[in-house]
Amino acid sequence: MNPLAKPSLRSASGRLLRLVLLGGAAAALLGFAGWAAIATHLLATLPCQNNSDPLGRPASTLFILGAFGAFALGHVLGHHRDFRREEHLLPLAGTPPVVGRRRDRTSLLLHLALSLFLLVVVVLLTYETWAFWLPDPSPRWPITSFVRCADRTHTVPTLAAAWLVAFLTGHWLWHPLRRRPA
């Protein structure tokens, strides 16, 4: 008999897989952040001197196709979550979402973290707009140039970081839809 045919074993293995992938993603992101803080020192050299030309084939394609794959993988991982203990939190089938659902102690922390993330996106896009405001050639470096410089000088770590971002986005924003039977 296949051991994974047993629901408890299947949910336990799914949870372990999820813990490993999420923990690995967090550790990898921390590693990339540390590496970026201490090991990036190539901006004064080609190709970054000219505001960084974009990458060509096949690396550019690899970035995009890999990001799509990582996005889908993040979604698939959402199917392997153990929902038994939060069954009562799922919305009832055929009913609209209820405002003011029960909260636990992590709610405030998570809402703050999500707000911080969206705030970071707004700040970065504001900076990008400010950097592009002047006509070419602008003395300000937009974020695009920073990222393309990292693409060209540190292709593999940047590729891994882009895939990780796509994986987490797919896992968080493309979550499997679940409902309690009415």
Binding site: F32, A33, A113, F117, I143, L168
Partner: peptide, 18 residues
Amino acid sequence: LRALALVVLVTLCVLAVL
């Protein structure tokens, strides 16, 4: 570059840890 990478990666890392 360092500031950009730190802000983006650390924010995502915090969310992944949570």
